[in-house]
């Protein structure tokens, strides 16, 4: 179980995250929602320790994650896999090597540095790629893949870490609607199939409602909602998203209306 207590991060005077507290049960699929700049990314990055907290504690199965350093920290990162908005693959390396990166904390350093990956690990990597139907691309350079394919490679890399929790930071923000489905379905499958906890930052409330068991709403660095998706009423969502809410509570009925002054319309018509 992941337990976060009073987690805070300051960048100068800016409180990116202040006093975040929550617990996530093993096997849950939790969505973290909120507008840009609400502190969602910082929260996830603190759990992987890419960003160090200014105050507060993170515990996982009783172990104090905030206190880890050196090889203990690397072992923790292996258990808490990250998935990024921009995929963060090494574009010049082939897909298989990118996925094998997920073994980097476990394989002896001389082997990984020399590129002599054990066959067993290659099999695991290929098996992960097959899970997401991209095994035929294993020998291709990652930079030559489409966005959706790259994100699936990144998910395979995370899966190959054999993690206990996956932290997905806006995994679909750079993807088109079709790939959004493919990637979210992949995360859901990992969650249901392999029993791995997923903590996923999402922009879109519709997607969050469709996939998550539970939602955590953030605004201005604070947690302002924590509960089942059905409990998140439109009024509460408006509180979380502020002025952005109309764009987030999507659906055809609420399509954004052009906001042009009459005079400008007149000029455009004349021209």
């Amino acid at each position: 179980m992941l337990v976060v207590e009073g987690l805070t991060r300051r960048f100068g005077n800016l409180h990116a995250v202040s006093g975040a507290s929550f617990a996530v049960e093993r096997g849950a699929f939790v969505g973290v929602i909120g507008p840009s700049g609400a502190g969602k990314s910082t929260l996830l990055r603190m759990i992987n320790r890419l960003v160090d907290p200014s105050a507060g504690r993170i515990r996982f199965d009783g172990q104090d994650v905030t206190a880890l350093t050196g090889s203990d920290l690397r072992r923790w990162r292996r258990r808490a896999a990250m998935i990024f908005q921009q995929f963060n693959l090494v574009g010049r390396l082939d897909v298989l090597t990118n996925v094998l990166m997920g073994r980097i904390a476990t394989v002896p350093a001389w082997r990984s540095l020399a590129g002599l990956w054990p066959d067993d690990d290659k099999l695991v990597a290929l098996s992960a790629l097959e899970q997401f139907d991209i095994a035929p691309l294993a020998a291709r350079r990652a930079e030559h893949l489409s966005g959706g394919q790259q994100q699936r490679v990144a998910i395979a890399r995370a899966l190959v870490q054999e993690p206990e929790i996956i932290l997905a930071d806006e995994p679909i923000a750079s993807l088109d609607p079709r790939n959004t489905r493919v990637v979210m379905d992949a995360l859901l499958r990992i969650n249901k199939h392999f029993g791995i906890t997923v903590l996923c930052n999402l922009h879109s409330l519709d997607i969050a409602r469709a996939y998550c068991d539970r939602l955590i709403g953030m605004a201005a660095g604070r947690i302002v909602f924590d509960g089942a998706p059905v409990a998140l009423t439109d009024a509460l969502a408006r509180d979380i998203y502020g002025l952005d809410s109309d764009q987030v509570l999507d659906g055809a009925a609420r399509a954004p209306q052009p906001d042009l002054p009459e005079a400008a319309l007149g000029e455009a018509a004349a021209a």
Partner: peptide, 11 residues
């Protein structure tokens, strides 16, 4: 892990 089990079974 389940993934490794699948990999070993289908090696």
């Amino acid at each position: 892990s389940p993934l490794r089990r699948i990999a070993v079974a289908n090696a």
